[in-house]
Structure formats: structure tokens, C-alpha cells
Design a protein around this nucleic acid. Structure first.
Lengths: 341, 341
DNA sequence: ACTCTAAGCCAAATCGATTTGGCACCACAA
DNA sequence: TTGTGGTGCCAAATCGATTTGGCTTAGAGT
């Protein structure tokens, strides 16, 4: 007598309920024609026995794996820690896991894949690619296998592609810039990085439009995306040479570098320079001073991405991309400039 | 004519190679008796056709899913961001994913599970539980299902349980304490948190032994594990009241809180107080001053955990737990105290 | 020449579900 | 009475691999 040695199969449920396996399957999947009384009885028995369909058998027959893949951003090893060190990605991951689970999907996390075969060997129904590069090879792999994909962030090389979910980077940028201006800033600069993610590209474009509309000179400095420690310091130096009185810095690691540079030059934040970062994080909250940040709502982003992907997996007509609204979290680093009042 | 519409099945390989499906299976799994020439031919054909066995079919027949689950620490929502905001966990996750992939295992990430059914519905061969609490319910769930588990960190309530991989917290603690003493510290304190993970428990014990051995008074302050922002500030205050000249702070968020408290009291680090944190992170590297930290080697930890789990899945005899050696990363926050020389 | 063994290969059973096609039964209309 | 349509249920086929249990054939031993 084996205690819990083997889980109950559909046959056990069928026998216990006195019906055929077919009927059990129909009840559990809400298909076919089954008398209401029978339906209730079978459901009760299945519940009592703790029956769970074997996912392999189910997948084999139905062709579905009820599994989706998650691919985090590709960044070379040196950059990984800097770019991903922000808890936005942790929160995003956890929320994708949670959302997938609630939709009865398992969440497979995949490493950076090189070859098509790497993807082929997993039983998955589709995937979520985070921060796609232009014409991202990972997206192409899914396409070649005929599997649905959704990206978190747009592929800036394919404006016609509508399979994405992304926080509203342009709106976030404008909100921050207006906030800085309202705090009294005259020379509002932007410090960003040369990575072709829509998040950065949209922020740059919004900044250009904002400065043009307000008749201000654009003060833009881009850090190189390699050797991040040194390039952050270098870019921060270049930026401070422009003598701005406020800066919007989308990536956290550049904001960290900028704060260090202001300290070295004896500048005070927010006394001499207002600083706002483009993504909220534990670091932004606890830095000195606390940094005004944009809340990208990773929880909602994750949920919408899973929802969009499942919709495509189930063969529904293509939906519009989803733009996630952002919120500004004002903190001490952008306290109103009073010395000029 | 469907281009890549359907992947090749074992039947296609068999026909193309002029053998039976049985033989193809034997070749691909290195089983049975097959002539060397036939073996080579079949392998070549399979390669040319890009054949990958359907994982559902394989799993159904063999009973193995070639999938392992990863469960991140349970912490209530408020605490999640604080505790997990350290990139150690991100690195750990990525490396588990990578290691699993290299061993031909898929990595399923699971949300905090409540009921046994939640686990039952996935096709998995075993799991890795990160930072188990005493008698962790997640570990118990695996046990009840008869599935192998490995934990990253020990269950301090079950010293006899050998299914774990963990960084050497005691050695790390002693290394840090010796380092602080060598830098000239007299009143060496410890600021930690009341969470029953082996990482913290071992550090506390090592600290107690070290102070006893060196005939120093133990200066230990534990933060409460809830309402972390305020409890960090409160604990930091209590600690500074003890007037230590050096502190070992295992968790990063407490170190962040401590630095803030020193600033508020006008104390300088390392001038008045040496500070070392117990886990390396981007925050430790970029804080002001940069914090001396313990490198827990998440990459190696991940690899060993996956290795240990697969060994158990394959039914090998139980192995000894694996202790991961640590390395101290001295930074400016513990620069030698010279004012007393 | 006559077993006997082992090598090389394959047909068929198997894993546990879903899905197809159809049978039996009943109610109702012609 | 006979046809017609709908309901409730099930036997058997199916998904794509692995594994079992032979069936040949060739070569060695006597």
C-alpha cells in the first residue's frame, strides 16, 4: 500500500464516480454534454481525490503546454549588475510569475539564448521578452517557431509591431520636466545612456520636444553603455560642465554616478541641482537625498504583458499595444528652488 | 506545404534514416544495441533535420519532466523590497537559470505557494527553496509529494537535514570581525535582524563566539523584521547609543539605515565608525562611502544547488551539504583607524 | 552439421490525458 | 406507428515519445 506514492489518474476518478474517463474529462474541461447531477458528482469526487491532470499527458494531446517563457534583458556581463541592479526588474519578474500562475500558466525563466534549438527544446506556448533591442534576435526566434511573443518595451526599429506593453516613457519624461520647471529650474538637462531601448529613446525624444516647445536649449549628455562605472563618472562630469540647475536621469546607475560627482564638486542636491531619476527603486528611496522618481508600475506592466500574451496564445485577434500610465514620486532631490525666489 | 509549421517527429527521423523509431530513440538516448555505423547515420540525420524530442511525450513516458522549480524567499509584501532589493538575489536567480539550462533542465519560477495543490499542478522533478524558514512549509510540500528539494541556506530547526547549499556565514562573520579588529577597532558591534534564516543565525553565533574568545563585550542590536524603514532607523539609533567604533551589518538595508543615522548624528564613516555589510551589491559598491562587503558568490551557490538537486533527482545517494567559501571585499568604509595610532 | 550466444534491429505496448464519432434512449410530431 | 431531433454517455483513436520482449542473422563452439 503506497500512501501518496502515486497521484490519482483520471481513471481513478472515473471509477470512483462510476462514469467513463471521457465524462470526467468533459466535466473538468467544461466541454461535451453531461447531466448537471453527474457533473456535480464527478467534480466532487475529483476534488475529494485531489486529482490534478498530468500536465505532460494533457500537453501531449492538446498541443498546449500551459507554460510561458520569460527572457530578461540582454546586457553584457559587466553591464548586467548596473542595469538590472534596480529592483524594478525583480518586481517585474515576481509579478509576471504571479500573474502567470493566476492564469494557470507556468512561468519558465530562460537564460540568454543563442540558437534556435535552445528555444525549441522547451515546451512553451509563447514568451515575454523584456527590453527588446532593435530587431531583437530573441523575438525573431519566437517568430521563426511560430510562437506568440510580447515584449515589455517597444522594438524601436519596428513601429508597426503592436505586440508590446510599455510604461509611458514620454509622458513620464514630460511630467518630470514640468515638475522640475515648476520647482524653479531654468537650465533643465537630461543625462541618459546610448542603449536602443524604447524607454530611453522615447525619453530623449520627449526631452527634445519639451525643450523646443519651451524655447530652452537642450542640454543632453549620453553615457556610453560599456565600462559603466567609468562612463557614468565621465558623463556626469560632462553634464555638470553644462551648468544645469536640474537634471532628468532615466537610469538609476547614472543618477548614482551623478550624485557622487556633485559631492566631489561640492555641489548640493537639491540646493544647486535638482535631480530626478526615471525608475523608482529602493536605492532611489534611500539615497541621500532621496531621489524623485517615476513609478513605472511593474506590477501592472507584468499583468498586462501576461494578459496580452495569453490573448495571442488563445488565438484572439491582435490587440492594441498597452501603454502603462506612470506616476511621479516627488522626493527631496527636487525640492523647490527657493534661493532664486 | 507548411514550411516550419510542424517540427519533425521521431517518425520523420526514422524514415529519413531508414530505421525504426525504436532505433532512433536508442541512438538519441545512448541505450540499447545499435551498430556504430547506424548510430552515426541516425545521429547525423537527426541533426540535419533539427529534431528535438517533444518534451511532453518524453515526459509522459519516462515520468521525468526535466524541469526544476525555484522558490524565492517568503517575506511579507512590505519587507520584500527591502530584503530582496539586493542584486544578490537577481544574480542568484540568473545563475540558477543558467546552470539548470546547461544541465538540460528547464527552470520554473514559482510564486509563494499556499496549498499543496498549487505545487501538484506543475510537472516538476524537484525544487530549490531559497532562504528556508524553520520547518519551512514549502519544503514540507515537496516532501509530501515525494519530490527532491534543496535549500539555499539551512533550515535552522533541522540540523540533521543535509539537503542544503549555503555560503559560510560564520566564516564570513569571523573574517569581517578580524578585519575590523585589524583596522584598529576596539568596540566591535553587530547590527542584524530577527529573521530565522541560517545566514543571520550563524552570523550571530559567530559574533558571540568571537567576542567571547577575544574577551570583548558583545554589542548586539537586532532590528524587528516588520515596518523595515522605521525599524532600521530605530535599530541604528540603539546601536549608535552603544558607541561602537566598528559594526558588522549582515543585511544591506540595515547598513543603508545605519549610514543615514551616522549622517544625522554627524558621525563620519570610516572616521568615527567602521561599517561592513554581509552581502555585496551594487548599493554597497556605490554608496558613500563604498561599503566593505562579503562576496557570497551567488554564481557558485546557484551552480552547487542545481548540481545537488539533480544528483538527488537522479537517485544518487545523499551527498553532504555544500558550504560555499566567501571572500572579503575591503572598501573605504573600513579604512584603518589612524587617529588612534 | 548442429546447437548456442550475442548482436542488431523492430513491432507493439505503454505513459495519461483529450477528442471523435456514434450508440441508446426519450420526447414529440406526423 | 414511424420518423426526427436532442440528450447523456462511452469506446476507441490519438498525441509522440520510451521501453519491453522478441525475431533474425551471423559467428563461435563442439
Amino acid at each position: 500500500m503506497q500512501p501518496s506514492r502515486s497521484r490519482p489518474r483520471i481513471r481513478d476518478v472515473a471509477e470512483a464516480a462510476g462514469v467513463s474517463e471521457t465524462t470526467v474529462s468533459h466535466v473538468l474541461n467544461n466541454k461535451g454534454r453531461v447531466d448537471a447531477a453527474t457533473r456535480a458528482r464527478v467534480a466532487e469526487v475529483a476534488e475529494r481525490l485531489g486529482y490534478r491532470p498530468n500536465s505532460n499527458a494533457r500537453g501531449l494531446r492538446s498541443g498546449r503546454a500551459d507554460t510561458i517563457a520569460l527572457l530578461m534583458p540582454i546586457v553584457d556581463l559587466d553591464a548586467t549588475h548596473h542595469i538590472l541592479a534596480v529592483d524594478f526588474y525583480l518586481s517585474l519578474t515576481m509579478n509576471v510569475v504571479e500573474a502567470a500562475f493566476e492564469r494557470d500558466q507556468a512561468l519558465l525563466q530562460l537564460p540568454p539564448l543563442r540558437r534556435l534549438d535552445d528555444l525549441r527544446r522547451f515546451g512553451i506556448d509563447g514568451g515575454i521578452v523584456v527590453d527588446p533591442l532593435p530587431s531583437d534576435p530573441r523575438v525573431a526566434m519566437f517568430d521563426r517557431l511560430g510562437l506568440p511573443v510580447v515584449t515589455i518595451g517597444r522594438d524601436i526599429a519596428h513601429p508597426g509591431d503592436h505586440r508590446w506593453v510599455a510604461a509611458d516613457s514620454a509622458a513620464g519624461t514630460l511630467t518630470v520636466l514640468d515638475h522640475l520647471a515648476a520647482a524653479g529650474a531654468r537650465r533643465v538637462a537630461m543625462l541618459s545612456v546610448d542603449i536602443e531601448w524604447s524607454w530611453f529613446a522615447d525619453a530623449e525624444r520627449a526631452y527634445a520636444e519639451w525643450t523646443a516647445r519651451h524655447g530652452r536649449a537642450p542640454l543632453l549628455v549620453l553615457a556610453r553603455p560599456d565600462k559603466l562605472d567609468s562612463s557614468a563618472a565621465e558623463a556626469a562630469g560632462r553634464l555638470l560642465d553644462l551648468e544645469p540647475d536640474a537634471v532628468y536621469v532615466p537610469p538609476q546607475w547614472l543618477a548614482t554616478g551623478l550624485l557622487r560627482a556633485t559631492r566631489e564638486r561640492g555641489l548640493s542636491v537639491p540646493g544647486d541641482l535638482l535631480v530626478s531619476v526615471g525608475v523608482d527603486s529602493h536605492q532611489a528611496r534611500t539615497s541621500e537625498p532621496a531621489l524623485t522618481a517615476v513609478d513605472l508600475d511593474p506590477a501592472r506592466t507584468a499583468r498586462e504583458a501576461v494578459d496580452l500574451l495569453i490573448s495571442r496564445i488563445e488565438g484572439h485577434p491582435p490587440q492594441a499595444p498597452r501603454v502603462i500610465p506612470i506616476t511621479l514620486l516627488p522626493r527631496r532631490s527636487t525640492a523647490a528652488i527657493t534661493r532664486r525666489a
